[in-house]
Design a protein around this nucleic acid. Structure first.
Length: 207
DNA sequence: TTTACGATCCCCT
DNA sequence: GGGGATCGTAAAC
């Protein structure tokens, strides 16, 4: 029986709180190829009524997972090439989620490296090969990178964290300071302080 | 039906 | 520091 956060944990915290509580917890994927894991060191909240949120206008086919139960995953394609993963928050019917932006890798680093050398969408070998292996700090320091390194795929959209191959553990880092700042890569709602990361952690996408 | 664009990444200068 | 890759989605027409 693996250690993981329960449905109750997700239900009793609002999305903004979850974004902060998830820092220091470990994201784990037990796949056929092996286990990969990393500590969540950077998150962003996307809230109900927030113009940057994919659910801002209305429920659509793409964002449907955000309107479902908290603690499920929301996986979507970005820029036609990469995927990003969120943990759904908020009451059912309100589209809210926590974007996972960076992990400090802890298990399966070789597997992460292999996966990061593939085309993120097709999983075929990339046409151009890397000159050198990626540095450990570059394996999961961005939302597209960590999804690829962890082997998270579009078919993981809507899976619950409490009964799937993907789980989040209770905190493994507890002694840290948190930085609160503005979100990355958006135009609407750019001034809102909804980005959180572990101060001084070198696996954060952008300090 | 058409079109514009995005919660990114990587390589080049 | 800047631009290109690449395509599904949703808003506009």
């Amino acid at each position: 029986m693996s250690v993981r956060l329960s449905a109750d944990f997700f239900q009793k915290h609002d999305t903004l709180t979850l974004s902060q509580l998830l820092l220091g917890c470990e994201l784990v994927h037990e796949s056929a190829a092996g286990r990969t894991a990393g500590v969540i060191v950077e998150t962003e909240a996307y809230l109900w009524g927030d113009p940057a949120c994919h659910a801002y206008r209305r429920q659509t086919k793409r964002n449907a997972a955000m309107f479902g139960p908290t603690g499920h995953l929301y996986v979507y394609l970005i820029y036609g090439m990469y995927y990003c993963v969120n943990i759904v928050g908020g009451p059912v019917g309100q589209g809210e989620a926590v974007l996972i932006r960076a992990l400090e890798p802890t298990e399966g680093l070789d597997l992460m490296q292999e996966r990061r050398d593939l085309n993120p969408k097709t999983l075929q070998p990339s046409l151009k090969t890397r000159k050198k292996p990626l540095a450990v700090k570059d394996l999961c320091n961005g939302p597209g990178k960590l999804v690829q390194a962890m082997g998270i795929r579009p078919e993981h959209n809507k899976v619950p964290l409490w009964e799937s191959a993907i789980r989040v553990t209770p905190p493994v880092f507890t002694d840290f300071e948190m930085i609160t700042t503005t979100r990355i890569g958006i135009t609407q709602g750019a001034e809102l302080p909804y980005r959180f990361y572990i101060k001084g952690n070198k696996y954060v996408s952008k300090a």
